[in-house]
Simulated assay, not measured.
Amino acid sequence: MMAAALLNGSRCSSGFRCQNFAKEPTTSLPKTRPFPMPLKAFSSKGSSTSTSAKLKSSLMPSLFGGGSVIKKKEINVLSPDITAPIFVPEFLDPFDDEYDGVIINPENLPSSANAFVSALRASLSNWKLKGKKGVWLKILSKQADLVPIAIQEGFSYHHAEPGYVMLTYWIPVEPCMLPGSPSHQIGVGGFVMNDKREVLVVKEKCPRSCSGMWKIPTGYINKSEDLFSGAVREVKEETGVDTIFLEMVAFRHVHLVAFEKSDLLFVCMLKPLSFEITIYEKEIQAAKWMPLEEFVKQPFYLEDDMSRKVIDICIKAYDDRFNGFIAHELASKLDGKLSCLYHNDY
């Protein structure tokens, strides 16, 4: 694209300084009109001189890149060959994962919608050429306006946590091999029995089928919490009783429960270290030490095969007639971390 430049002493895009004609004043051409302009623009009003005469010797070879210097009364215009800048879209900031995919850095996402969609499209095209597969896009809460844009570009929801939503994109034209969103909730229950063969039980404040029933303390484990630690914590929170983990005796696996997720409940044997009860009033209606015979004779346990079997296993484990799983902390070369392996001693 050709653009007009004024000989006013300013630097041209070619890197040279344009000549300033001191004897002849300059005038600016409108910025909105590209050069060359119609020849009649250079004719003086009322002049009888012909156009060819006026322009005689006015076109001179330019020393600034092949343009022409139009030398005319009171007008000196330089038109160098200026190449229009090539627009190179910015790419998103990624790092590679272990499966030929990319994870986009959420901290460096463009703040404007136009910049984001431009960078996203350019990046996807680039990753496709490189043979990348899965793309993980984490959008923080403060960037929530970018979510519908990513969805329109073909991304899918994967999961959400407080503070962000995770989206995914599968590049190859083949079935998606990315893992699905978290599918399970994990809960723990603590069976605690003292030397008097009394079971620590609670009555929850809930409208469920267990309402009004005495049961062992249960709850969901926290993020990055071990199973045995979760069982000890739940008993402490609901009853105020301190315990230590002995063994895991059973677990139940059920599907399509809360939010259509699967559910795992791990039942742990715990030994009491204290006996005074202080309930968590927001969740627990009451708690007490209940004689074992009274506990197992509740109508619910007499009618529910699953619960009755769990209690039967716990009693056998307490009487050393059943060996459950003990937590063994071991290191793994897969991730270089210590983790718990649950198994019975042999």
Rank of each mutant, 00 (worst) to 15 (best):
M166L: 15
G65W: 03
L178F: 07
N344E: 11
N105I: 10
A41Y: 12
V117C: 06
D93N: 14
F275N: 13
A331S: 14
A5T: 13
H255I: 15
K73V: 11
K54P: 01
E281H: 13
V254P: 00
Y346T: 14
M37F: 12
V199C: 03
L330P: 00
F245M: 03
L302C: 11
L167V: 07
E161L: 14
I139D: 01
C268T: 07
R321I: 10
R33Q: 14
P85S: 09
G336A: 05
N222I: 04
E294D: 12
E238I: 02
G66T: 08
P25R: 12
V201W: 00
K297F: 09
D97H: 07
I326D: 09
R308H: 14
C210P: 00
D319F: 08
S229M: 09
K142G: 06
G66F: 06
M213W: 10
S125Q: 14
P299K: 08
A4G: 08
M1F: 09
D242S: 13
L59P: 03
K133H: 12
E225T: 02
P148D: 05
P217V: 03
R121H: 09
G46P: 04
V192A: 01
L7T: 14
G219M: 03
F191I: 06
R208G: 15
S48N: 13
L92V: 08
L55H: 06
V310F: 01
S79R: 08
Q285P: 02
K288V: 08
L292D: 05
A53C: 08
A258F: 13
F42Q: 00
G187R: 05
E237C: 05
E276P: 00
R33N: 11
L167Y: 03
S118Y: 02
A53P: 00
G230N: 01
F266Y: 11
L129Q: 15
I86N: 06
E247T: 05
H159R: 10
P30V: 07
F16P: 00
S156Q: 09
E260S: 15
V235S: 01
V135L: 06
F259I: 12
G230C: 02
Y346R: 13
G324D: 04
L167Q: 04
S28N: 04
I70R: 02
G230V: 01
